[in-house]
Amino acid sequence: MAIYIALLRGINVSGQKLIKMDRLKEMFETMPVRNVRTYIQSGNVVFTAEETDTERLRLLIESKLREALGYGVDVVVRTKEELERAIAGNPFGGEEAAGEAKLYVSFLSGEPEPAAAERLASLRSEVDEYRLIGCEAYILCRERYGQSLFSNNFLEKKLGVLATTRNWRTVNKLAAMAAEQ
Rank of each mutant, 00 (worst) to 15 (best):
A116K: 13
Q41P: 08
Y138S: 05
I87C: 06
A121I: 02
E143Q: 13
A49Q: 10
Y104M: 07
V127A: 14
R144K: 14
A68K: 14
Y39V: 00
S122Y: 01
R142P: 06
S122R: 15
K158S: 07
N152P: 06
A97K: 14
S106H: 13
L103K: 11
S151G: 04
E50H: 10
A86C: 07
V73F: 07
S109M: 03
E126S: 11
G110T: 01
S42N: 09
F150G: 03
I87N: 12
P91H: 02
D53C: 09
G94Q: 12
L120N: 09
G134E: 10
G72H: 11
R119Q: 09
T48D: 12
L59E: 15
K64V: 09
Q147Y: 09
R124T: 15
L108Y: 10
G99V: 02
N90I: 01
E81L: 07
Y39M: 00
A49H: 10
S106I: 00
D128H: 03
F92W: 08
A98G: 06
E55F: 03
R124P: 01
G70N: 12
E84P: 02
S63N: 13
E50V: 01
A86S: 14
E51D: 07
L123G: 01
E129A: 08
G93M: 11
R66M: 01
Y104S: 09
V75R: 13
G72Y: 03
S148A: 04
R56Y: 01
